[in-house]
Simulated assay, not measured.
Amino acid sequence: MTMQSPVVAIRQVEAPLPPAFAAAVTQELFDKLRLEPVPVMFQHEYGNGDTWDGYCPHRTNTERGEVVMAKRLVETTLIKPKASHIQSVYLHEVAHRLTPDAWHNAAFSAMTLVLYLRAGVTDGAELWQLVSLYDAQDEEDVGTAIAWAWKTANELAPTELSAERCGEVILERYTRWRTWLDEKPQREEARQAAIKAREDATKANEQLVADLRESRYWWAAGAFLFGALAAIALRFL
Score class of each variant (00 low, 15 high):
Q4G: 00
S5K: 13
V7P: 00
V7K: 05
V8R: 14
R11N: 15
E14M: 10
P16K: 13
P18T: 09
P19A: 12
A20L: 04
A23K: 14
V25W: 07
T26R: 14
E28Q: 13
E28C: 06
F30K: 00
F30A: 02
K32Y: 05
L33C: 08
L33P: 04
L35Y: 10
L35T: 07
L35N: 06
P37K: 11
V38L: 00
P39N: 15
V40A: 13
V40S: 09
V40K: 11
V40D: 12
M41I: 14
F42V: 13
F42K: 14
E45F: 05
Y46E: 07
Y46T: 13
G47Q: 01
G49M: 03
D50I: 12
D53K: 13
C56I: 09
P57D: 07
P57V: 08
H58L: 12
T60I: 09
N61L: 05
T62A: 10
R64Q: 15
R64A: 15
G65W: 03
V67D: 00
V68C: 13
M69D: 08
K71R: 12
R72H: 12
E75Y: 12
E75V: 15
L78T: 12
A83G: 10
S84W: 12
H85P: 02
H96Q: 06
D101L: 01
D101E: 04
A102I: 11
H104W: 02
H104N: 05
A106K: 04
A110M: 01
M111S: 06
L115Y: 00
Y116W: 11
R118W: 05
R118G: 02
A119T: 14
V121T: 15
T122P: 03
G124M: 13
G124E: 14
L127V: 09
S132C: 06
L133P: 00
Y134K: 04
Y134W: 08
E139H: 01
V142Q: 05
V142S: 00
T144N: 03
A147T: 03
W148Y: 05
T152Q: 05
T152Y: 02
A153E: 09
A153N: 09
E155S: 03
L156Y: 03
L156K: 03
A157H: 04
P158N: 09
C166M: 01
V169Q: 04
V169M: 09
I170V: 02
E172Q: 05
R173A: 06
R176P: 00
R178A: 05
R178E: 09
W180D: 11
L181Q: 02
E183M: 06
K184P: 00
P185V: 03
A190L: 12
R191E: 15
A193I: 04
K196W: 08
A197E: 15
E199R: 14
E199P: 05
D200Y: 08
A201M: 10
K203S: 09
N205M: 11
N205W: 07
D211T: 13
R213T: 10
A221M: 11
G222H: 09
F226M: 15
I232C: 07
I232Q: 03
I232E: 05
A233I: 00
L237H: 04
